[in-house]
Amino acid sequence: MIEPIKQIVGTGVPIPGADIDTDRIIPARFMKCVTFDGLGEYAFYDVRYDNDGNITKHILNDAAYANADILVAGINFGCGSSREHAPQALVKYGFKAIIAESFAEIFFGNSTTLGLPCVIGTKDDVDALKAALQADATIEVKIDIETLTVSYADVSFAVTMPASAVEALTSGNYDPINELLAAEQEVAATLKAQAYLA
């Protein structure tokens, strides 16, 4: 049994830009690996370092945000490839949840399975949160998965997440392997019914 995930409380970092794709979250050249260990240091590598390997002015390099727990982003976060290396890199980097205006589907599913909740806020709410975090890196942000609310300072706003993801996270069932394994006989029967010929 995995621990249920009902609440995430911590500091946040606003990531500028829309359509942050998985190549940007973890550039492909760092995917030459046979385990996910050590991916954290390459998260967002190409925005954190310039072409000569120097540290950039990106907000992720700002010491004030170094230990942020919650990533706050714009629309279509995680689009592109199906690589689980992307959410794995974010988890290993230290993120515990993501708030964005929307997520690409495969990324969302991969993240949920890892226990990295992705909640969706409206543009206005997300922009306001980003502005608040920009002004003060120490603000404590709370994501409540059961009530689907995000609160910080004296602000609180509603977020959305598909019911199945809420259920999976709050029940501690987000890694479905045991449930999938348990249905072995039904699986065999469904497979037999297909009568695949190759």
Partner: peptide
Amino acid sequence: AFGIGTTQVRDVLATQTIAMG
């Protein structure tokens, strides 16, 4: 036909199924 994450690759290897909406 669709792309899946690595944990789901494990699920398919182990069970020939995945959880999906």
